[in-house]
Design a protein around this nucleic acid. Structure first.
Lengths: 209, 209
DNA sequence: ATGTCAATGACATGTTCATGTGGTTTTTAG
DNA sequence: CTAAAAACCACATGAACATGTCATTGACAT
């Protein structure tokens, strides 16, 4: 029988209590700790020999250090713990920040307790659960973020130049790489700048990265 | 009562038949079409006045044009259709390619028919469903892909400078933006170069983008 | 055939950058 | 309190870059 040790970091007592009860009522889970802030959670985790935590449900809106700020601290102390963000905020910025900082899942607080516990076991088994609306934001970001409209109007040769710039090469290096004169590189870049309406290498690179 | 019109593109007859039955047995759904390849699906979609499709379940391993290649074609004809990839492949490359090309969800074929149909309604309502293992790969990619080990050793002020560089600003512009002398900007950048072991603006920008 | 356009190249001028070697003043940590 | 770290500033030099104008070639379309 698996025993998933779950930690809670949530300042709202009402929610914390119901989560606590829910964890204790789930056969596969047991409560490792319940804290009201990242600071006190870190205390619990370091003070004495700790039994271990598999999953931490972490709120974002916490007094003191925010959940977002807390992620690296927790992961530093417990590199193997899986963090599930449990929050009312669903703006793309926060979602991405949490996930890039190492959270495994991001769940809306509106989600039913049952689904939250399902997410816990899912994450414990090496998966990840996303609320549909969160998942959609992720997906939209992927499909929307990859567009590079201006770039389409560059010729093949111009793209060669851009690739060189993107790799941090100097004009001279691009010239020798493409076996052309440095003045030709200049000519190309002048045209590229006009097409893309920019006036520095970095802006060009930014445009297609 | 909502009526979600579902299209199928799947060459394996066995799977296609069971999906077809499943769609027809779901009250909220009806079958818009069932094709064995992207090519024939596109035919169906363009030949005559078509009733409309809300969701397309799209296989990747198709004869002729692959599902991946098919995504842009389908979206070109039906910009508002939501595409759900339904596939046995779960490598990160394919997942990302599908999602960046505009697929809304990516589901393993091992998933039960019930969950697949749940995903259809979820997507129809503006969400996105990911198999836990797929979601995990996405998340891992985010947290793994965004690592910038060298950058951590930069001070706040140095980060201000880096942000300026990343936005394509010149030293002069950074200086006025931060209300410091251009020589101070130079000093900072010299240190940044040493810390990051690079020697051009572009390499710095590349490092944290 | 003729004109447009991409690719090539040269020359010139002023600007910005990379890099060095000095400093001073805050902040921060021991 | 003191030493180190971070932030601030100045001056100097050669390299790289941004930008302009002009010219040649070959491909492709009208």
């Amino acid at each position: 029988m698996e025993d998933i040790r779950v930690g809670l970091v949530e300042d709202n007592m009402t929610i914390r209590t119901s989560l606590k009860q829910c964890v204790e009522m789930t056969p596969a889970c047991s409560l490792a700790f319940a804290a009201g802030s990242v600071e006190s959670a870190l205390d619990v985790l370091s003070d004495f020999e700790f039994a271990g935590v598999d999953i931490i449900l972490l709120d974002i809106g916490l007094p003191g250090m925010s959940g977002l700020e807390g992620i690296p601290h927790i992961r530093h102390k417990l590199p193997d713990v899986d963090i599930i963000m449990l929050t009312t905020y669903d703006d793309t910025e926060r979602i991405f920040e949490a996930l890039t900082k190492g959270a495994r899942s991001y769940i809306s607080k509106k989600t039913s307790l049952k689904v939250i516990m399902d997410a816990v076991t899912t994450v414990y088994r090496g998966g990840s659960y996303m609320s549909p609306s969160i998942a959609r934001k992720l997906v939209d970001h992927l499909s929307g973020g990859k567009k590079k409209p201006n770039l389409k109007s560059l010729s093949d040769r111009q793209m060669d130049i851009v690739r060189g710039l993107a790799n941090g090469l100097s004009y001279k290096m691009i010239a020798s790489q493409l076996n052309i004169s440095i003045d030709t590189v200049r000519s190309h870049i002048k045209k590229i700048y006009k097409i893309l309406e920019v006036n520095s290498k970095i802006e060009v690179v930014n445009m297609f990265k």
